[in-house]
Design a protein around this nucleic acid. Structure first.
Lengths: 199, 199
DNA sequence: CGATCTATTTATAAGTT
DNA sequence: TAACTTATAAATAGATC
């Protein structure tokens, strides 16, 4: 669209290239703006000229947000893998980085303010440990249950031992044998069929 | 450039909006490609539709490289600002990381390790996971121990109940009382002082 | 719906200042 | 060199299939 048709191939003349870059760069940005407005969408454009200069613009959301969005999407495939496991399997720097970025983004979608890297680290660890914390919690419940059972069983045992000792004494009153089973408390004579302890 | 002029403002009809998004998105991408080829430059475009779907394309360099370029540049602009002030101004974690990376660069870590901070963080997290795994492991040991104890205590109980039953019978041979404690196996007459079960 | 067509608008290459 | 002009290519809105 100009005085004559141009082939889409490298422009040899550096100055023409520069002019065209400038014109088309502006055109691209305007098109992006229009797309954003017309279609209620976010658009980000990054351009690096042949001389290495960077141009960027975004519409709708901020550049940071759009890029973050991209990275979340991009890392989505990796995010569910267990970090430690990946580590053990000799993850490359790049892959590990992807996972880490993803986790950070997950932990930080609302752009909360931060004061230090330690805070960030804390956020990160917290996010990481939610699932594990639940697992630990359940395990603790299990352990406590078992400990309770153990205590009850020991009590029951103790009572039984006492009863046995008493009966032994009745049968053989001369025995002075005591030791570990020296009973403390006595119960009624009828042997308990089952102590109402376990389930 | 169509049958009639359109104002650049939100398209009300969702379906028209969708059609326009699709057409102009393709147009934008083609323009980006042309700019890249004509002017030997790199161009990246990210678009998020109103329905939240992400579209991206890049020409020249890879998306990752272009974004990294942007982030480094962006961080460079931030690196001289006061950290605390930036914090107050709702710096995102990502931006903070950029600053830190910059600082690391300044501190002249060699160029290849621009990402070393994030990498280290990843490593750190991996280490954390390992620690958690160890904790879990120990907990499982604990659980298994407790379960073993429980089993042994139940056995012991069972034996004690049997013994009591036998003695009861000896004293009151006429009793036909049985029930839950009806014993199965018998032991020697001497009551066990302590069964060698626990610790 | 999505692809294709075409009347128009828009972008821009080259020319001009 | 950059800004303005203009002839023309390209993009696309709405229609049609």
């Amino acid at each position: 669209m100009g005085r004559r048709k141009v082939e889409i191939k490298r422009i040899e003349s550096k100055s023409s290239q520069q002019v065209t870059f400038c014109k088309r760069r502006n055109g691209l940005i305007e098109k992006a703006r229009q797309l954003s407005v017309l279609c209620e969408s976010s658009v980000a454009i990054l351009m690096v000229s042949s001389t290495g200069k960077l141009y960027s613009s975004s519409f709708g959301d901020s550049m940071a947000k759009i890029i973050k969005r991209y990275e979340i999407q991009h890392a989505a495939a990796l995010k569910n893998m267990d970090l430690a496991e990946k580590s053990r399997n000799y993850l490359s720097h790049k892959e590990l980085l992807e996972i880490v970025k993803c986790k950070l983004d997950e932990a930080n979608l609302d752009d909360a303010s931060v004061e230090s890297l330690i805070y960030l680290e804390g956020q990160f660890k917290a996010a990481l440990s939610v699932t594990r914390a639940r697992k630990t919690e359940l395990m603790w419940e299990l352990v406590k249950n078992l400990e309770e059972k153990e205590k009850l069983l020991r009590e029951e045992n103790h009572i039984l031992v006492s009863q046995l000792a008493k009966m032994e004494k009745k049968r053989l009153p001369e025995t002075e044998d005591e030791g570990a089973m020296s009973s403390v408390n006595s119960y009624g004579n009828s042997p308990p069929k089952t102590l109402p302890l376990l389930k």
